[in-house]
């Protein structure tokens, strides 16, 4: 019982991070129809920038958090302006390959700047771990869950209530039609990139205190986030959250009841099963287009 609870706590903590990353994939896909394989690198940039700002420059946590998210969003803007928009024939495959190239570039530059070592930083609040029926819950896990929830709600409100958010949705549904009614679609795509990268930055800043961050952490996290987004259904915010949590919990249970060697395997077997039986993901709409 105590172990089960511990597996759940561990799974939900990891799952919430996967969820924020999945959210980034999902919102970019729903706005532009593009899968950004450099997304994991934005998570890495977010984590390392957060550490540099909070530990290196001794900024207070909220300022460092905002700074890390802003810098990551700026990286997303740069990617769109410098690489994506320049493509004359934006065939999905071409764009996907560009993002793969961008991920290698970002990783290399980060390695030069932050070095090859791992870095760490202090948790947001210095409380002792909370004991729940013999299982340990970290205060940082609560921070992660709370902030993830806040992000999802914020995103939801933005898309439903704000004119810009609705314009972004319109652009996603039909770029041509949105342009006809006077929506600056280029701006919308740019904004989607920035927001998606910001999600990555948030994910990075959230996990920086509980794990060790290094320049090569992005690939693994990006894959897990992508997996979560596919499981939940690409394009669905709630699906991303659900997929992330499900993935995290299943991984932890896989470690607990099967073997720790099967941790990653359980994630990818789940993905295969879902793609086979329900190719649009658990919460995706039936019409979602796939490559």
């Amino acid at each position: 019982m105590q172990e089960l609870l511990q597996y759940l706590f561990s799974g939900i903590t990891n799952g919430a991070v996967y969820a924020v990353i999945a959210l980034g994939f999902s919102m970019l896909y729903s706005s532009t129809g593009l899968i950004n394989f450099a997304h994991g690198e934005f998570v890495m940039v977010g984590a390392l920038t957060f550490i540099s700002l909070s530990k290196g420059l001794k900024m207070p946590i909220p300022v460092a958090f905002a700074g890390a998210v802003a810098i990551t969003a700026a990286a997303g803007l740069l990617l769109e302006r410098m690489a994506i928009r320049k493509v004359r024939k934006p065939h999905p495959i071409v764009l996907v390959i560009i993002t793969v190239g961008a991920s290698i570039l970002v990783r290399g530059v980060s390695m030069l700047y932050w070095g090859k070592d791992s870095h760490n930083c202090a948790p947001y609040s210095n409380h002792a771990p909370i004991d729940v029926a013999g299982a340990t819950l970290l205060p940082q896990s609560i921070w992660i869950l709370a902030l993830t929830l806040l992000v999802v709600i914020g995103l939801h409100v933005f898309h439903k209530r704000f004119l810009t958010g609705r314009a972004m949705l319109a652009t996603a549904i039909s770029r041509k039609a949105a342009g006809v009614v006077g929506i600056p679609t280029d701006m919308m795509v740019l904004l989607a990139f920035a927001m998606s990268a910001a999600m990555g930055g948030i994910g990075g800043a959230l996990i920086a205190p509980i794990s060790m961050s290094s320049f090569d952490m992005g690939m693994n996290l990006g894959l897990k986030g992508f997996c979560a987004a596919m499981i939940g259904g690409l394009g669905s915010s709630w699906g991303a959250i659900f997929g992330g949590l499900l993935l995290g919990v299943l991984e932890a249970l896989g470690v607990g009841f099967l073997s720790s060697g099967l941790k990653d395997a359980s994630a990818f077997v789940l993905l295969l099963l879902i793609l086979y039986f329900r190719p649009t993901g658990l919460m995706g709409k039936a019409t979602v287009q796939r490559f």
């Binding site: 511990q6 794990s211 090569d216």
Partner: peptide, 17 residues
């Protein structure tokens, strides 16, 4: 005997076991 991935961020599940 338990294992962990070189890039894993949280090992509480293994330690609980």
């Amino acid at each position: 005997a338990e294992t962990f991935g070189a890039k894993d961020t949280d090992m509480t599940a293994q330690l609980a076991k």
